[in-house]
């Protein structure tokens, strides 16, 4: 079981005199759990998500982001050595974090022209698996592996290069299955990544990507914004499936109770001024929906 642990996390915008945004965030997400992260605009929710994933626009000034793994987290056949069970994510590149099972669902996913969904996702999946192998490899074995990497396996005139761990045919089948589950039209597979997608299609696509990449922990930033009710249900079904079928832990950032009716959270947190001000069960989200954030603010200032 994987555990994402944020402790005393402080972060600012990565420039001289950059604005301080996170002011001591403490949060723990286990795989298989669903957490909702709520709070007023500007309280630091999205920044928390981006710092977890390693966005270069933010600089961590204090605190830690740790990922704790257990034997079996990457399947029975994947051995995780004793000394490679806790990772300091802040020392890793975004793609290394992805390889360890961190996924960020973007509020505004990028549009990449000319790159088909199929090509992108298969490349990403293979890159992730390969990087994971490298991260968990014996340090001695590393040099040898690099040697092998040099050069083309065959001449470009003679045929394809190494296909990677998941081949084209196998991947297409996987993609098709996952798209059916999410009720996505199969023609999306040949469309360019997010290019010309509607807001709703982009969000659906984020969940699809999580389903393919099978993360241990998925941070979903306002996955519910801009969705109509039908698509909200599709997306919710997809998120529940992540947890139920893959055991993914979900940290869901949202402004609205609405999605929580379909994706019931185990824990709800309220963020205020760069920290977690209040945590509770699903009833907390309902109270926020009815009463807004003022009472949280008052409570925080009273205790202060």
């Amino acid at each position: 079981m994987a555990r994402l642990e944020l402790s005393n996390l402080h972060a600012k915008v990565a420039e001289d005199d950059g604005e301080k945004i996170l002011d001591g965030v403490d949060l723990e997400v286990f795989s298989g759990e669903i957490h909702a992260l709520m709070g007023p605009n500007g309280s630091g929710k999205s920044t928390t998500a981006k710092v977890i994933a390693g966005h270069p626009a933010y600089e961590v000034t204090d605190g830690e982001v740790l990922l704790h793994l257990e034997e079996g987290d990457f399947g029975e056949d994947f051995e995780i050595a004793e000394d490679k069970r806790t990772w300091n994510l802040l020392e890793l590149e975004p793609n290394e974090r992805a390889a360890l099972g961190i996924f960020l669902g973007f509020q505004y996913p990028a549009e990449i022209e000319g790159v088909t969904m199929t090509n992108f996702l298969r490349t990403a999946l293979n890159a992730k698996l390969e990087e994971r192998e490298e991260l968990f490899e014996d340090d001695d074995a590393e040099d040898e592996a690099e040697e092998e990497d040099v050069g083309y396996e065959t001449s470009p005139m003679e045929g394809n290069v190494d296909e990677g761990e998941v081949g084209v045919a196998e991947f297409q089948q996987l993609l098709q299955e996952k798209m059916e589950q999410l009720d996505m039209d199969s023609k999306f597979a040949q469309r360019y990544l997010n290019a010309g997608f509607s807001g709703g299609e982009k969000k659906q696509n984020e969940v699809l990507q999580a389903a393919i990449l099978e993360p241990s922990i998925a941070v979903l930033d306002e996955i519910d914004s801009g969705l109509d009710i039908d698509r909200l249900q599709d997306v919710s079904k997809g998120i529940n499936a992540l947890r139920d079928e893959q055991g993914t832990g979900v940290l869901q950032i949202t402004h609205y109770q609405r999605i929580l009716d379909y994706v019931e959270p185990d824990h709800v947190h309220v963020m205020l001024d760069g920290k977690i001000a209040e945590s509770g069960g699903p009833e907390l989200a309902e109270k926020l929906e009815d009463e807004g954030y003022d009472w949280v603010r008052e409570q925080v200032y009273e205790t202060a």
Partner: peptide, 18 residues
């Protein structure tokens, strides 16, 4: 675009591959 690169990186591609 830096955001485009980060998006692809967050999916597992390293900086160069992205």
């Amino acid at each position: 675009g830096d955001e485009d690169v980060f998006y692809l990186q967050s999916r597992g591609l390293d900086d160069d591959d992205a």
